[in-house]
Design a protein around this nucleic acid. Structure first.
Lengths: 244, 244
DNA sequence: ATAATAAATTGACATTTATCAATATATTTT
DNA sequence: AAAATATATTGATAAATGTCAATTTATTAT
């Protein structure tokens, strides 16, 4: 983990500092920071820097104190729940312009997840104390964060239902559709993720994932080369996902 | 489902209306409503009545519009996610003095869960529009609700991890410990829940649940009579829960 | 380039869990 | 109380999934 400044920016003026965290002053779909005025943005960010992570590096570690939020400016990260006996579950992949708190914000102030870089990542850290301070001052911001939290909650519910109610083919189909439609948003998508990671997203062993993927390929549902997957019959995959 | 007023109260004065929803003006551990002043409480509740449900009745149904929150004044209810093909998962049991929104509050305004009465229930419904209105006016309240939401989120995470990382004995142990320590809070606890419901809490079929329970009994970990379960060796159950 | 290391794949097998059917027990209704 | 219904239990079996070991292929370091 190395500190650095984006070389296209001076890194010191206010605009650069906002931009260091967010493109267009908002985060992903949720516009959490879009409603803040410059002073408020400043109160969040006046002492932070951009941090670069290399693939595989841990950005935040489960069970450590939650002192900072992380804002992903560019790159992909995985949100992992590290279970007992080394069983990991990848709960989501986070993209550029996302904010992530680590779970226990405002509740118990420790991290319930590990977040690790999948690709190179530029991100920045924001003091939770600054966040809390802003919450007490800007009600609209509190409501936006509540919306964000509830939305995350419902996504986790859907993960929970998918993992507990479906057999392996349904779970593999879910993972492939999620990657294509929510993360990479292209059809033959290159995957940087290892088979182990794909399996960890699907709640199964890598061997089981590989076998399931191969059946999809044998049935002509997908094409699978060295480092890309192409979904050929999306409707069939959706059907498999639906039937569990 | 029948409307009624608590016969110990007049049902019309303000105090009665507050009390109709909450004992001591707060909800469970989270004191969400404890921070409201009388005017604010009134703005939430001036048009509501107490509703009584009989065991088995549906209080709110998954996939319907989220128009009201429910506050449980007395009794036990189950929060169920109704999966495809009739597979239900009971996510939590809610007790007296709990507030429950149904999942999609502020996000998509439909219900992501079904809530059904396990015992007789007295509860009341609060318009979401009144809640939203109050949110815009009282920042402390927004923050309290955010805290409540994050706390629910972390509980669901722990359910997710337990259900996906553990074999059946670990899941059964979790369910028994949850019932004893969080719901009934007595040791030989009477259970109103059917074996099917206990299985739905543990993510397995009733047959599997029964077999697992029987093994615990044969090993002397629990005693299991007609309608009660006694945990004899809690530490051993905790160990089983931990080892998955 | 070659060696060393890591990741992916395959097969055989064991374990876990669900399904189905039969029976027993409890609960409700008449 | 008897009949009807629902719930609980048991057993036999099949399906789903994980484990372990061996092998191949890719990636990294020398």
């Amino acid at each position: 983990m190395s500190e650095s400044q984006d070389n296209s920016m001076c890194g010191n003026c206010l605009e650069c500092r906002y931009d260091c965290c967010f493109n267009n002053s908002h985060c992903g779909d949720s516009h959490i920071f879009g409603i803040l005025n410059p002073d408020e943005l400043h109160s969040l960010m006046d002492n932070k820097r951009q941090i670069h992570f290399r693939p595989g590096e841990t950005i935040m570690k489960q069970n450590t104190p939650l002192t900072h939020l992380v804002c992903i400016k560019s790159g992909l990260a995985k949100v992992v729940s590290e279970g007992p006996k080394g069983k990991n579950l990848i709960l989501q992949i986070i993209k550029s312009n996302s904010i992530f708190t680590g779970g226990g914000a405002i509740v118990d102030d420790f991290r319930h997840f590990t977040v690790a870089a999948v690709t190179d990542i530029d991100c920045c850290f924001i003091d939770t104390s600054r966040l809390y301070n802003l919450l007490t001052k800007n009600n609209t911001f509190s409501i936006e964060l509540l919306k964000h939290s509830n939305s995350q909650h419902m996504k986790m519910l859907s993960t929970l239902i998918n993992l507990t109610n479906k057999y392996m083919p349904g779970r593999v189909a879910d993972t492939l559709l999620y990657l294509k439609n929510n993360i990479f948003e292209t059809n033959p998508f290159n995957f940087i993720l290892s088979k182990q990671e794909l399996a960890d997203m699907s709640g199964m062993t890598k061997e089981s994932f590989i076998r399931s993927l191969k059946e999809f390929e044998d049935s002509g549902l997908i094409r699978h080369t060295r480092n890309s997957i192409e979904i050929l019959k999306e409707n069939d995959l959706i059907e498999i996902s639906r039937n569990g």
